[in-house]
Design a protein around this nucleic acid. Structure first.
Lengths: 354, 354
DNA sequence: CTGTTAGCGCTTTCAA
DNA sequence: TTGAAAGCGCTAACAG
C-alpha cells in the first residue's frame, strides 16, 4: 500500500496543527478563509482523502447500512435494493448487501458480520423462522441498531416494517380467477411457516369463501419458488380425479413451471386452465404467453424502507419510532388468465400486447 | 445506541489489562489457559463483540472488498457477485456492491466511496470509457489497492482481469447460424466503445469472412441491452430491400425484443428467421420458444476473480501479479435457431424440452 | 505469562 | 482564529 496522506502530513507541510486542518476541511465557522483556502489547495495537491474508518471509529457511525436478502438474483429483491440505494446514497450512506440463500447459518453469520462492521442500520427480509434467528435479531435490538423488516417480516413491538398486503394480493388473484369463470382453483403455497405465504394462502381461502366456493385441501400444494417444483406440483394436480381449471401460485417461478408442464401435456392456457403468479418477475411479461401476476412495488418498498430508516436516525435517542407500512399489491392481468378477448380492460396488458 | 462492551470493560472486571484481554481473545500463544478461559467466559457473558472498525483502523485492512457493476438485476452480474461472495466469505471478507447504472458519475463516485471506505480490493466491470473513469482508476492504482477487472475490462499493464473470449462467442454464434443454412445474418451490436461488444462484433465478421459471406454494414444495428431496442432494431431491418434471415444479438434482451416483434408481425422463428442472443439470461431458457444464447460462466468468473484477488493479497509487497484469465464461452443451442428437428444434438436443449 | 505504552487518523473540548 | 491534548477500540513492540 502506498502511504496515504493524512491530515498530519498536510499540517506539517503548512506548519499548522492537524486540528486546524480538520476544521478547515470540515468548513468550520471559525477558521480564516485564508487558511481554509490554503489547506484545501494543499490537501488536493497531496491527493488527500479522508479515512472514513477513522471517522467511523471516532464518531461511532459507519455511514453504512446492511441489507440482508435471500437472493439478489430475484428481480424483486434486486429492485428493493435499488430503491434503498437510490434513497440512501445521496445521504452519504453505503449499502452492504448480504445473501442468505435461505440458509439459516448464513443469515445468522450475516447479521453478526454486519453488527461487527458497526453498520448504522440493518434492512432484512428474513428466512424461515428459527431459534438462532431470534437470538441474532435480539442482538440487533439490544445494540439498538435500527432494524427494518421488508417483505418477509417478523412482528416485533417497536420494530418497523414495510410490506405489501399479501392477503389482499392472494384475494385479488383468486377473485380474478373466479371472475374469469374458473370453478376449481388450485393454490401453490410457499413454505407456510413464512408469514407472506400464510397470508397469500389466507387471501385465497377468503376469496373462495366469499364466493361460496368449497375449499379443497387436495388443491393446495406446497412448492418452493422454483420452476422445477411447478412441474412437479402440476403433475400431482393432474392425477386428481377432478383436476383444477385454475392455479394461483404464490411464486412466479412455480407458475412458470406449471405452464411449461401444461404445454408439454397439450393443455391449453387460458382456455382449459388459467394461471396466476406472484411477484411480477420480468419474465412474466416477456413470455409470449404473458403471465398474470401480482406486483409488489419493490422499488417503492425499498425507498420507503430507506426513509423509515432515515427518520429513525433523525429521531435516535428520543422515543422509538415504530412504523408499519403496508403497500397495496396490484394485480396485473395478462394472457395466462384472460379468457375474454377484451384486451382493453387492463392497462398493463394493453402495453404489452404487441 | 446502547454502550458496547469493549475489551477495557472486561479488563476492568477481571482486574487485568486490555492487552491481555486482546491476546486472550486472539488465542495468543503466551497466555495461560486459565486466563484465556476466564476472559472468553466473561466476554461472552458481557456480550462482547469485536469492533471491526477499530481493528481495521489499526491494521489498515478493512477486510472488505467492493464490487462495481452496471446493474445487479442482470442475472449475469448477480451470478458473478455470488461467485465472488462464495469464495470470499469463508476468508472473512465482506462484499460491498455498487451499481453504476452505466452512469459515468455514479461510477466515479462509487470508486471514490470504496477507496474512502478503505476497501482491501476492488472488482469492477466498467462502463463506457471516459476521462474521469481513467482518473478514478488511476487513483486506485496509485493507492496500490488491488484491482480486478471482470467481463468489461480495461487493458492496463500489471492489472489482472477475468473475462470470456467474446470474439469466440461471437464467432461460434455466427458459425452456428451459418451451419443452420442462414444466408443473411444481421448483428445487433452493443456500444462499440466497449471492448466486449467490439470483440463479439469482430467474431461475427470473422465467421462471415471464413465462410466467404459478404459483410453488409446495413445488417449491423447498434442497440442497448434492452427489450425495446430489439423491437426498434428489427423494424429497421425489415425495411431493407433484402431483410436478413438470421440475427446474432450481443444482448439477450435485444434478442427478446426482436423475437416479440417478429411474432407480432407473423414471421416464423426459426423457419423464416433464426435468432441468437448473448449472456444466457434465465428467461432465454424459460420461453416456450427458448432462445439460443452464449453462456459466460458467471459464477466461475466470480470465483476466479476472487481467487486472483486472494493471490494478490498473499503476494502483496512483493512483485506485482498480473493474471489475465480468459474463459471459454459456451454456445447453448435452443429452439430460436434450430431448424432441424434433431433435438438430441444439443445437451442443453435435451434438458429443456419438456 | 502479563503489564505498559504508543499509535492507527480523525474530531472535539478546553485553552490561549 | 488556532493549538494542545484526549480519546474512539484495538493491537503490538518492548519490558518485566
Amino acid at each position: 500500500m502506498a502511504k496515504k496522506t493524512t491530515i498530519y502530513d498536510i499540517a506539517k507541510k503548512l506548519n499548522i496543527t492537524a486540528a486546524t486542518v480538520s476544521r478547515a476541511l470540515n468548513n468550520n465557522q471559525k477558521i480564516s478563509q485564508a487558511t481554509k483556502d490554503l489547506v484545501l489547495k494543499t490537501a488536493s495537491s497531496m491527493n488527500y482523502e479522508q479515512n472514513k474508518l477513522a471517522l467511523a471509529l471516532k464518531s461511532g457511525k459507519s455511514n453504512t447500512v446492511g441489507v440482508i436478502v435471500p437472493n439478489i438474483n430475484r428481480d424483486f429483491f434486486a429492485s428493493v435494493i435499488s430503491g434503498i440505494e437510490e434513497t440512501l446514497y445521496p445521504k452519504g450512506y453505503h449499502v452492504i448487501i448480504c445473501q442468505t440463500h435461505d440458509i439459516k447459518d448464513f443469515e445468522v453469520k450475516n447479521i453478526e458480520a454486519l453488527l461487527n462492521a458497526q453498520v448504522d442500520g440493518i434492512f432484512i427480509s428474513i428466512s424461515k423462522a428459527n431459534e438462532d434467528q431470534d437470538k441474532a435479531i435480539n442482538r440487533i435490538l439490544q445494540k439498538n441498531v435500527p432494524l427494518i423488516f421488508f417483505d418477509r417480516k417478523k412482528t416485533i413491538d417497536g420494530v418497523s416494517c414495510v410490506t405489501i398486503n399479501d392477503f389482499e394480493g392472494g384475494y385479488k388473484a383468486t377473485q380474478h380467477l373466479i371472475d374469469q369463470g374458473c370453478k376449481r382453483i388450485a393454490h401453490f403455497c410457499g413454505d407456510l411457516t413464512i408469514e407472506i405465504y400464510q397470508e397469500r394462502f389466507r387471501g385465497y381461502k377468503q376469496a373462495l369463501h366469499d364466493n361460496r366456493y368449497a375449499f379443497k385441501q387436495d388443491y393446495v400444494i406446497e412448492t418452493k419458488s422454483d420452476v422445477e417444483e411447478g412441474h412437479m406440483a402440476l403433475k400431482k394436480l393432474l392425477k386428481l380425479s377432478l383436476p383444477p381449471d385454475a392455479i394461483f401460485s404464490s411464486s412466479d417461478f412455480a407458475a412458470l413451471g406449471a405452464i411449461q408442464e401444461l404445454k408439454a401435456q397439450g393443455i391449453r392456457i387460458p382456455e382449459e386452465i388459467c394461471v396466476v403468479g406472484f411477484s411480477n418477475e420480468p419474465f412474466t411479461k416477456f413470455m409470449e404467453l404473458s403471465i398474470t401476476t401480482v406486483d409488489q412495488s419493490p422499488i417503492e418498498m425499498g425507498k420507503i424502507s430507506a426513509n423509515v430508516f432515515l427518520e429513525q436516525m433523525k429521531n435516535s435517542g428520543k422515543s422509538k419510532i415504530e412504523k408499519k407500512v403496508v403497500l397495496t399489491p396490484e394485480l396485473l392481468i395478462r394472457k395466462s388468465s384472460l379468457k375474454s378477448t377484451n384486451y382493453a380492460q387492463n392497462e398493463d396488458l394493453k402495453r404489452n400486447v404487441g
